[in-house]
Amino acid sequence: MIVGEQKPFDEIWEMVKDYNKLTVVACNTCVAVCHQGGNKEAELMASLLRMKATQEGLEIEIVHVGVERQCEHEFYAAVQEMIGESEAVLSLGCGIGVQFMAEKFQTIPVYPGLNTKFIGDVVEKGVFQEKCQACGDCLLGITGGVCPITRCAKRVMNGPCGGSTDGKCEISKDQDCAWQLIINRLEAMGKLDRYEKLTPIKDWSKDRAGGPRKFRYEEGDE
């Protein structure tokens, strides 16, 4: 899932304070799971903004609405009209949702209420961790199911580097050394001999480096 974090309230306020009619739009998939952009958060954000507006002596009509996924057309049917009537939109979706809406509502400014952080999982209640960088050429089959591109600070493909100490990364004692995890996994699977195989030089053209990516699914291919 995509993990986001709400921007500081003051930053959000600065973006939206000059409009008379604002719609806060929740996204009820990924960013709802991390409690940053779902219906509940949109409702709370709308009321915080209303309070701030009152304090500042400004009259802004602030409403909120939720869509299941801000990144797909079909989920907009019920809210299309309401959003279309807004002067501005504050999206609590990830960067994808913001862009999707900006493209959909050409004349309406859409502001990001979140900072999109990473693609990750829920390691424990309330703790989200980055797990994938969408490099476009998955290495997990040779690295014991632990991604060094994402989880090693230097994305070392043949690690660990000389900074690995007590299983932790040199940049932070709170960060596991990805290569320690890889070695542990290989060991547990009885495949430590694989460690000595050099990981080939990576083709980054399948990554962001190769330019913006697109994937087309042709139904006829099935």
């Binding site: 043949n158 660990p160 580097c161 000389g162 900074g163 690995s164 100490t165 007590d166 299983g167 050394c177 320690q180 070695i183 460690y195 000595e196 050099l198």
Partner: peptide
């Protein structure tokens, strides 16, 4: 090469890997 970094068990294999490289 850092013989003192962790995990120690792969420090020799790691040197072998650098040789192979």
């Amino acid at each position: 090469a850092n013989p003192f970094a962790d995990p120690f068990s792969i420090r020799v294999p790691r040197l072998a890997k650098k040789l192979a490289a």
